[in-house]
């Protein structure tokens, strides 16, 4: 069982002010089962609408930079680096999708895809990003929830 991260007083206040009370699994505490992560990173379930926004946002997931996605055909500039994500929920389970988001290198050795929930082991990270993951635990859950809506069946 992953220990819930100890919240500082400031974070606690912020969390309460935001109306959210969610224990989080810290990046280093994430438990992999092979390349999958079966357990949610937060207590609060993911929100697909927020996940969709994170997918598009260039400063957050920026998933669209590499993956085409018909669900957002009105967005310009779909990337061609990774596979298109249409029907991705038919191909991968929730735990597998979470694992790929947290650290895709466990599933695909040598992939170009960044690990979105990893906060250490980087070579010369820009100071403002040092010690931080690309996405928060909640954002990862939100993207997982969104990806699970991408079904073709």
């Amino acid at each position: 069982m992953a220990a819930p991260r100890i919240l500082t007083a400031a974070a606690l206040t912020a969390a309460l002010a935001g109306g959210a009370w969610a224990a989080e699994t810290a990046p280093a505490e994430v438990r992999f089962d092979g390349s999958a992560v079966p357990q949610r990173l937060t207590d609060a379930p993911g929100d697909p609408a927020r996940g969709r926004a994170v997918f598009i946002d260039r400063k957050l997931g920026n998933c669209l930079a590499c993956h085409a996605n018909s669900d957002m055909a009105d967005e310009p500039f779909h990337g061609e680096i990774g596979p298109p994500l249409d029907g991705v929920a038919d191909r991968w389970s929730e735990a597998e999708l979470r694992g790929i988001l947290v650290n895709s290198k466990k599933a695909f050795e040598g992939t170009i895809m960044p690990a979105f929930y990893k906060d250490s082991g980087f070579n010369r990270p820009l100071r403002k990003f040092a010690g931080k993951p690309i996405l928060t635990a909640q954002q990862v859950e939100d993207v997982v929830a969104y990806l699970l809506t991408l079904k073709e069946e």
């Binding site: 170009i112 960044p114 070579n123 820009l126 040092a130």
Partner: peptide
């Protein structure tokens, strides 16, 4: 060599893609 939070090498973009 991979660098940065995105953990990419020159080759990931300019050789592979």
């Amino acid at each position: 060599t991979r660098f940065g939070q995105l953990d990419m090498a020159c080759s990931n973009c300019h050789e592979d893609n």
